[in-house]
Design a protein around this nucleic acid. Structure first.
Lengths: 127, 127
DNA sequence: GCTTGACTTGGAGTCAACTCCATGTTGTAC
DNA sequence: GTACAACATGGAGTTGACTCCAAGTCAAGC
């Protein structure tokens, strides 16, 4: 697969894809003789990994650190495990905060729907 | 309540608190004669709102827009409702992406725990 | 073999959201 | 009444994550 194919598949730009490679969030991608990137299944797996984690807010730096450890081989298994646990815990916290915000918005929305439909404001202040 | 109290309460810096006010993510805060900010219950409600939404990733700009509409009065009820619904939908999407990432990490973590405990790598590639 | 669109690199630019700084003021404790 | 921490302002600086650009190379169609 080419850069364009991968970008379309994951909904990112070519610049972003190359940026991920440049900073190590995905390993160096194999090239054709002419120097054109050629993504095989494994490379695409790495892109999927990076895109999935980035969408959840994991930093490019943390993703790159995982890739770096991965490439160092089996002696970094424990380090990788710790890294993953740390990131997972961060995401769990983020999930709680996100859920709280959705609840806040849902509550406000229900009040506003009332207000818009009935013309009556059934609450005070800004809550 | 003073700047310091509010910061401690919400775990943000004084600079951030003043920044939120400056860009309108919270309304202008009342001052003492000497010009010192004094947060009453309502002001604190606005800070809570801003902090909660920011933690979930809602942009400062969107929060400020809500505040702006709020201060324009009842004629903006519908606009505010639409704004809230848009933001809520964005957060729901974000929640899905976050959940997917947590699942990915949980799966990897379970594999790594196996590998670290047994010394056996029970999977191929980078998955 | 020429056009054309997609690709290459290195480096600079942009944007949101802080974060820091200089310089001065306020107000509580002694 | 003086020391000192916390406050004020305006503006500059930083950070992370892209995003754009210039100048050139590659390759599929005609």
């Amino acid at each position: 697969m080419t850069v364009k194919d991968v970008c379309e598949e994951f909904g990112i730009t070519a610049d972003t894809l190359r940026y991920y490679e440049r900073v190590g969030a995905i390993p160096k991608v194999a090239r054709t003789k002419g120097g054109i990137r050629e993504y095989d299944a494994e490379a695409i797996g790495w892109v999927r990994n990076a895109v999935c984690l980035r969408k959840a807010g994991v930093s490019v730096e943390a993703i790159a650190e995982y890739v770096r450890l991965f490439e160092m081989g089996d002696e970094t298994l424990k380090d990788r495990l710790e890294l993953l646990i740390g990131e997972r815990n961060g995401l769990k916290t983020q999930l709680d905060e996100l859920t709280a915000a959705v609840e806040l918005l849902d509550w406000k929305i229900s009040r506003y729907q009332e207000a818009v439909e009935t013309g009556v404001l059934s609450w005070e202040k800004n809550e």
